[in-house]
Simulated scan of single mutants.
Amino acid sequence: LIAEEEVWSFEVGDLEWMEWHPRAPVLLAGTADGNTWMWKVPSGDCKTFQGPNCPATCGRVLPDGRKAVVGYEDGTVRVWDLKQGSPVHVLKGAEGHQGPLTCVATNLDGSLILTGSVDCQAKLVNAATGKVVGVFRPDAVGPQPNPGEDEESESNSVESLGFCNVMPLAAVGYLDGTLAIYDLLTQSLRHRCQHQSGIVQLLWEEGAAVVYTCSLDGAVRLWDARTGRLLSDYRGHTAEILDFALSKDASLVVTTSGDHKAKVFCVQRPDR
């Protein structure tokens, strides 16, 4: 047996997110003090990208590995040049969000960025120009709330989002349980898939127009993005699912839950 040993460690403030670089042994992380850190592992060479004086709440390295998009609690979005250590684009005010960022995503070639926020908007950004080219709002997903439902509507937010790799589609998951699938060419709503509880995370299958969701009711669901049809669901947790991951061949789903358990589900799709 090979003894496990620590090869690298570093101490920073409270962590908000972490992600490995797609092309190198480099780790990026955002912290509550607004900084984004980048380390070479295991050498420990470090670079810091200083944001506004508020938490760096989410981030994603672009597919080319040269830039990273980071969202902040004050609603701003920065696209950083990882080599130069300077922001290439800064979206704030009307171009940014009116609430903390919750999630960011990029498409397969890195030309488009999606940002999501507690302001219930998902913004489509041209990565080359830094310009907002589309806005997906909850009023395009479902009916407007009735008078007296302000408290419920204010509790809604974008919780997760992502791009399909095989079709020009994007998915946005909301705290109210709505999964919205948008056509990127027309920027129109294609399907609305409703959950009884809030969506925590969504993931697209790498080579198919199938999107996976996990929610506060403790279930994982598979949706056909072409039709909006529920393909299957997997249950077994007694509390909310906090996060999940999909194997590269989409044969396994691994979940972690508030019931203090992790589960592995074998995916059996009826359309296969």
Rank of each mutant, 00 (worst) to 15 (best):
L1E: 08
L1F: 14
I2T: 15
A3S: 11
E4I: 00
E5C: 11
V7D: 01
W8Y: 09
S9V: 03
F10C: 11
E11W: 09
E11G: 14
E11V: 14
V12T: 05
L15T: 02
E16I: 03
M18K: 08
E19V: 15
H21T: 13
P22M: 02
L28V: 15
G30A: 04
N35P: 06
W37V: 01
K40T: 02
V41N: 02
S43N: 13
G44A: 00
K47Y: 02
T48H: 01
P52T: 03
N53Y: 08
C54P: 06
T57Y: 11
T57L: 14
G59M: 01
L62H: 05
P63G: 05
G65P: 01
R66P: 05
K67H: 07
A68W: 00
E73T: 10
D74T: 13
L82P: 07
Q84R: 13
Q84I: 01
Q84P: 08
G85M: 00
S86C: 07
H97Q: 08
H97G: 04
G99E: 08
P100I: 04
L101Q: 03
C103E: 03
C103Y: 06
A105H: 07
I113S: 13
T115A: 07
G116F: 12
G116V: 14
C120I: 14
K123I: 03
V125I: 10
A127N: 07
T129D: 15
G130H: 05
K131V: 00
V133T: 15
R137D: 09
V141Y: 02
P147W: 00
S155F: 13
N156T: 08
E159C: 13
L161G: 10
F163P: 00
F163R: 03
F163I: 02
C164G: 08
P168W: 00
L169R: 09
A171P: 11
G173V: 11
Y174K: 04
G177N: 09
T178W: 08
T178M: 14
L184D: 10
L185D: 12
R192L: 09
C193F: 02
Q196R: 11
I199T: 07
Q201I: 08
Q201Y: 09
L202I: 06
L203I: 11
G207M: 15
A208D: 14
A209C: 09
T213F: 14
G218R: 02
A219W: 13
V220K: 10
D224P: 09
A225F: 03
G228S: 10
R229D: 14
S232G: 06
H237Y: 01
A239D: 13
F244T: 12
S247A: 05
K248E: 07
K248A: 10
D249Y: 05
S251K: 14
T255P: 05
S257C: 04
K261R: 02
K263S: 06
C266Y: 12
Q268S: 06
R269A: 08
D271C: 07
